[in-house]
Amino acid sequence: MDCKEFRESLDFYADGELAPEAEAAARLHLNECAACRRAEAELLRLRRALKRTVAQHQPPPELVRRVEALIGAHRPHRLWQRRISLPAPVFALLLVATLLVGLGVASLRRAPPGKQSASVQPEQKPPAPAPAPQGNLDLARFDHGERATIYKVRRTQAGDAQ
């Protein structure tokens, strides 16, 4: 390889793009030619200066955060962090179904106790009313599991009054 050939292929040599035989020939020429060595050194110096110049700029931290957030926003969340999205008709149906169930439960609760028990146990006779307490309530009876009896007695009395 002579000086002319070397200067024409200096880019490829410096960039490692020469075929192995051509690269060997170029290296051989460099060993013999001081002027071409200087030309190559100048090209490498330009490359170093370019790297230094470009390296001066650092990405601002807010850009890094912004890009990370961008990816985070598009990344799937963990199962318990995921949003559930439903098509509008499905959502409306679910809402109506929930309302109907809620109304049904509420109407069952409002139904009179007699009617409710009749629908469940039609042949069951109402329990015999407990003897009405005489005079003031005997609070000592609360300790013997008779609270329910007192309640029923009071309800029955209220029903009789109506």
Binding site: R7, E8, L10, D11, R38, A39, E42, R45, L46
Partner: peptide, 17 residues
Amino acid sequence: IEPYYDWEDEFMREELS
């Protein structure tokens, strides 16, 4: 490709950023 005929004279200073 334009050959590097005039590259043996130093034009690059290290502090040229």
